[in-house]
Design a binder for these strands. Structure first.
Lengths: 235, 235
DNA sequence: ATGTGATTTGTACTATCGTACAAAAGATCA
DNA sequence: TGATCTTTTGTACGATAGTACAAATCACAT
């Protein structure tokens, strides 16, 4: 009962549990939850199928543990970066810093987990698309607070934009962020090989630049209504 | 139960084949490909599992037929709207019209198929996230031409922006579009019920407004480099 | 009414799924 | 070393997956 260095320091020895988590993360993020079997995961981790059951009880439990592993550190990092961003004086700079505080942790490692940031964000994107229930629950109760904090901070920088519209634009930001991680090859393809969709640093810069401009767009109410002219629809 | 007059084609009578397609579309778009069984689809369509095999041979064949059904009409509609948009004189109006020509067919019906536009786009988003091979192939060879046409048209309206950056921003647009259809409830939640994420007309307007501004943002090269100051990172 | 081709049904087969569980192997310390 | 946990292995079980196929049913021209 004693003498087990309470799982905090076990990280040094080659750990089967960690290998399973990493393999599951990668496979889920690439192929979705249902397309990956417990046996696939075990094989990728060099483990026995029964070992997965032993450590995580069920497949859902494994997914849950992946989320638990990442949510805390990523949220913490975001909060720190957001706090720093809010201290920026210049309004334009502050807005950019806030957006960057939201984007950067999603692309880079959220903790000491090697390169797990982008992979975990990609996983979240896929689970979100599949309407995974386990993920839905834990995400709503983990990230909604942070999202509200970001929205409010952006609203402080852009008080003339209604909060609802900032919500929409934040939503677009998250969608763009997700999609950039899910299908980076499409960027390479459409640019005819001239851009690399897998270049995280470039993705961040492009995303921040585009998003800051999107946030700064005039609100819908305030957009000159005379200019609005819908394109002809056939039906 | 007699006498549905066989007007020329099979299109008029209540068709089991159509019911299966519609049910599959909805289920795939909501839960992903692997989470939905052929039996689920048959039950939702009020059909027999064997009927699915009869009409579409395999589950992949069913998915393929869904794509075939929608890709043509949606592409056609987009081309028409794009052609009209390109004729707009005012540059600002033209850019907005182009973006609208890209967005509107994704949200609304792409043909006579009832309300299928948004549903099919949601399906594409989910298949893209899951890395579905069948979808990947047909999408790349069906939509890439159209995407290039849009990118080139936008580039014509914004010649001072490098084409690569327009590719990035178009990519963000598609990501935002997808995500709006995949999790509209998140908009409702984060706006504390004040906005309805399922309001397609509102989503279109918000998306167009934000995206036009994003496209008009200065290029990365041209963004005043003195202003760029990364937020402090801890690691 | 009947024959014919198209469709629907019912069922069965094999593969693989998630999970359970007992036995083997390692690890830890008196 | 032997006793006691912890971890890994091997295997098995019931459920469900995709698909095949023969029989039943339907639509309709003759």
């Amino acid at each position: 009962m004693v003498s087990k260095p309470t799982s905090k320091e076990t990280a040094r020895k080659p750990n089967m549990r960690e290998a399973i988590l990493a393999a599951a993360e990668e496979l889920f993020a690439t192929n979705g939850f249902n397309a990956v079997s417990v046996r696939d995961i075990a094989q990728a981790a060099g483990a026995n199928p029964g070992s997965v059951t032993y450590h995580f009880k069920t497949k859902d439990g494994l997914l849950l543990e992946i989320y638990r592993r990442h949510c805390g550190p990523m949220n913490l990092r975001r909060s720190e970066l957001l706090a720093a961003a809010r201290r920026v004086r210049d309004l334009q700079d502050r807005l950019e810093a806030i957006v960057r505080a939201y984007v950067v942790p999603a692309f880079t490692s959220g903790s000491d987990l090697a390169g797990g940031g982008a992979r975990f964000t990609r996983l979240r994107a896929v689970m979100s698309a599949e309407g995974n229930e386990v993920a839905r629950k834990i995400i709503a109760q983990t990230f909604d607070d942070t999202s509200h904090a970001f929205i409010d901070s952006i609203h402080d920088s852009l008080p003339h934009i209604p909060r609802n519209e900032i919500v929409w634009r934040s939503h677009f930001l998250l969608g763009a962020l997700y999609y950039s991680l899910v299908t980076p090859d499409r960027v390479s393809r459409l640019s005819r090989g001239e851009a690399d969709g897998s270049d995280a640093a470039m993705a961040i810069e492009q995303l921040v630049q585009a998003t800051v401009a999107a946030f700064q767009a005039p609100a819908l109410d305030q957009a000159a209504p005379a200019r609005r002219r819908p394109v002809a629809s056939k039906t």
